[in-house]
Simulated assay, not measured.
Amino acid sequence: MSTVTSPLAGRAIGLANVPDPVFSGAMVGPGTAIDPVREPSEAVSPIDGVVVSMHPHAFVVVDGEGHGVLTHLGIDTVQLNGEGFELLVNKGDTVTRGQAVVRWNPADVEAAGKSPICPVVALEATADSLSGVREDGDVKAGDQLFDWS
């Protein structure tokens, strides 16, 4: 079983509340979402593993069991073309849970007219393979979001 922890401080809101049908409909996969605190921060890895996809607005880390976790920093933030995001690791790097991956400011994303809400998704998973999914309440970076069996 893999434990997936929050990459950000904020409030857990569940995927159903993400203002994007691809995420709210769990088309990418099950998981939850974080409405982040509006201050400059670092998004950290939610698991130990290898960075297999790295973009300014999103990254995927795959653990030793083959579980891939997508962290998407805001909605439609690809349209910002990387502005306001600083990559702290590279694709192919091995990272540990809690290691800083991207530096960004959710307030700047919001000021640019995008939602700063961050889906945290278990890729290629089924909803019944996740347990203990956090869908409300305040979370700190590193707090448990769900278990993946």
Rank of each mutant, 00 (worst) to 15 (best):
M1R: 00
M1A: 15
S2E: 14
V4P: 10
P7D: 07
A9R: 11
R11T: 15
R11M: 09
A12T: 06
G14V: 10
G14T: 05
L15D: 12
A16C: 04
A16F: 02
A16M: 13
N17C: 00
V18E: 09
V18F: 08
D20I: 08
P21S: 14
F23V: 10
S24C: 11
A26W: 00
A26G: 03
V28D: 11
G29W: 06
P30H: 07
A33G: 09
V37Y: 08
R38A: 15
R38K: 13
E39G: 01
E39T: 12
E39L: 13
A43V: 09
V44R: 06
P46Q: 10
I47R: 05
G49F: 13
V50C: 02
V51T: 02
V52I: 15
H55P: 01
P56H: 07
V61H: 03
V61P: 04
D63S: 12
D63W: 10
D63M: 11
G64Q: 12
G64L: 07
G64V: 12
E65A: 15
E65S: 15
G66M: 03
G66L: 05
H67Y: 09
G68Q: 06
G68S: 07
G68K: 08
L70K: 10
L70S: 08
L70Y: 06
T71Q: 03
H72Y: 00
L73A: 04
G74Y: 03
G74I: 05
I75Q: 00
V78C: 03
Q79R: 08
Q79L: 13
G82I: 07
G84C: 05
L87C: 02
L88W: 04
N90Q: 14
K91T: 02
K91I: 03
G92K: 09
D93E: 09
T94Y: 11
T94K: 12
R97N: 07
R97M: 03
V101G: 00
V101I: 13
V102M: 02
V102Y: 07
R103W: 03
W104N: 00
W104G: 03
N105R: 05
A107N: 08
D108Q: 14
V109C: 04
E110G: 00
E110T: 00
E110C: 05
A111V: 08
K114N: 12
P116R: 04
C118G: 05
P119G: 10
V120W: 02
V120A: 03
A122H: 07
L123R: 01
L123G: 03
L123Q: 00
A127C: 02
S129V: 05
S129I: 00
L130K: 07
S131C: 06
S131F: 13
S131L: 12
G132V: 15
G137L: 06
D138L: 10
G142I: 12
G142T: 11
G142K: 12
D143K: 14
Q144H: 13
Q144F: 00
L145K: 01
F146K: 05
F146M: 08
F146S: 08
D147W: 01
D147E: 15
W148L: 15
S149P: 10
S149F: 01
S149T: 15
